[in-house]
Design a protein around this nucleic acid. Structure first.
Lengths: 194, 194
DNA sequence: CAATTAACTTGACACCGTGTCAATTGACAG
DNA sequence: CTGTCAATTGACACGGTGTCAAGTTAATTG
């Protein structure tokens, strides 16, 4: 296994682990140790912490095959099915990548590159929301209370990582409840009542 | 003006200002300079950065008279009015305290005392949500789709600082839109359709 | 008036984590 | 044998927090 990959994998392991327990920041030296190399050697592969974190998210995407997951929602026939499939896909994806996303979120406040990477990811996610809302709109099943743009903003916010974090961590919802209630809520809010 | 108060006021000014522009962390030395004293002197009044931040939030509460604001929602006759009054009161309060809350949020990830202070605040806020939902429940106007506990969780999440942050910063909603749409959304989700 | 006390100042320093640099080692390839 | 690549070691700068000791200043009090 290439050293670069070992570093990425080590980062992933540590972010995953620290998220559950202490939650305190994973250091470059921790990552190096876990990867079995010296701290300085990490910098032979990644310019800085921000770059490493960003590359780790790409590595994760490859591992989890993000694209394939979202394909399901794209092929749904009706707008309602598409909305549900998207919530299911994205909602199930969050817990798998949460550790890494959390580190990126923390970093975006101080590092402009991290902020950009984060924004790009969230913008991609927004497109998924927009597509689901537009599918409803074409089906004439979008609630007349909302124009597509507004509905997209609200859905995007509902499905944000922060919202997931709040419901599962602060409210203690199990993952299954999150998916279930989010689907129901989206239905109630966005789908025109028959 | 007592030095302690000057420090608190300086902290407030800087948090308010940095939130709008750079957003980068306000340092102890910045606060000291702004208060017109030496960096070390700050530690004569506050044990550490976390304590200073926490005390600053209390200072803010006193300045803004938080209690009085929430009184309005408590005196509403109907559940629906209470819900609206609470959204109005809390929703208008957030932008006034956002700078300070943001600093506290950032700190809670590393400092256990800050985490506790944050949780306490959010728990207080949750009580406001719970009271509004219970008022709906007593009026028999709570949507049959939700038990009070579940509705409280959802309202609490909807009105969280993170949600406000997302809608105003990421989606670019003006404050007026935030209040308007939150009221409408809460109505739609929680109030039983006549 | 002299002594004390509280609030603050200055300068120095330890600790941590990030990032950099120079010199060195070991392995493998032509 | 020589060059090169990947990694190692040790040292160091920087920024931010927090601590400590010694000195100043002004008000308080016997």
């Amino acid at each position: 296994m290439k050293t670069r990959t070992r570093i990425l994998q080590a980062t992933l392991n540590l972010l995953e682990a620290s998220q559950g327990v202490g939650g305190k920041g994973v250091r470059m030296s921790d990552i190096a140790t876990q990867a079995g190399i010296s701290r300085q050697a990490v910098y032979l592969h990644f310019a800085n912490r921000a770059e490493l974190l960003i590359e780790t998210t790409y590595y994760l995407d490859r591992l989890k095959d993000t694209e394939a997951r979202l394909a399901a929602s794209r092929s749904a026939e009706t707008g309602v099915k598409r909305l549900n499939a998207f919530i299911e896909a994205w909602g199930s994806y969050i817990p798998e990548i949460y550790g890494t996303l959390k580190a990126l979120m923390a970093m975006k406040d101080t590092d402009p590159e991290a902020a950009e990477a984060w924004n790009k990811r969230m913008q991609d996610m927004r497109e998924g929301c927009e597509a689901a809302i537009k599918a409803l709109h074409r089906d004439k099943t979008l609630s007349p209370d909302y124009k597509p743009d507004l509905a997209t903003d609200i859905l995007w916010t509902m499905l944000s990582v922060r919202t997931w974090e709040h419901l599962t961590t602060e409210c203690g919802w199990p993952q299954t409840a999150y998916i279930k209630h989010m689907k129901a809520l989206a239905q109630k809010v966005f789908v025109a009542s028959a």
